[in-house]
Amino acid sequence: MRPGIHPEYHPVVFRDRAADSAFPTRSTATSDTTVEWTDGRTYPLVDVEISSASHPFHTGAARVVDAAGRVERFNRSYRR
Rank of each mutant, 00 (worst) to 15 (best):
M1A: 12
R2V: 12
R2A: 13
P3A: 13
H6Q: 11
P7D: 05
Y9P: 00
Y9T: 05
P11G: 04
V12H: 00
V12D: 02
V13Q: 02
F14N: 02
F14C: 00
R15H: 06
R15M: 12
R15D: 04
R15I: 03
D16T: 03
D16K: 00
D16L: 03
D16N: 11
D16Y: 08
R17M: 07
R17D: 11
A18G: 01
A19V: 05
A19I: 09
A19E: 05
A19W: 03
D20N: 13
D20K: 14
F23H: 12
F23Y: 15
F23T: 13
P24H: 06
T25R: 08
T25W: 01
T25Q: 07
R26D: 07
R26V: 09
S27M: 01
S27E: 05
T28F: 15
T30R: 10
S31N: 00
S31A: 13
S31Q: 00
D32K: 07
D32N: 07
T33Q: 08
T34D: 06
T34Q: 12
T34V: 13
V35Y: 04
V35A: 02
W37N: 05
W37Y: 13
W37R: 01
T38C: 01
D39R: 08
G40S: 04
G40K: 10
R41Q: 14
R41C: 08
T42W: 05
T42V: 15
T42D: 07
P44N: 02
L45Y: 01
L45D: 00
V46H: 00
D47C: 03
D47I: 01
V48A: 06
V48L: 13
E49L: 12
E49G: 14
E49T: 12
E49S: 15
I50R: 14
S51D: 07
S52K: 13
S52A: 13
A53C: 14
S54D: 03
P56V: 06
P56C: 05
F57G: 07
F57K: 15
F57D: 15
H58L: 11
H58N: 13
G60V: 02
G60N: 05
G60L: 03
A61I: 02
A61M: 09
A62P: 03
V64E: 14
V64K: 11
V64W: 08
V65C: 04
V65H: 10
V65D: 12
V65S: 07
D66K: 04
G69Q: 04
G69C: 10
R70N: 14
R70Y: 11
E72P: 00
R73P: 02
R73M: 11
N75C: 06
S77G: 12
S77M: 13
Y78N: 12
Y78T: 12
Y78S: 08
Y78W: 14
R79P: 02
R79W: 11
R79T: 08
R79K: 11
R80P: 14
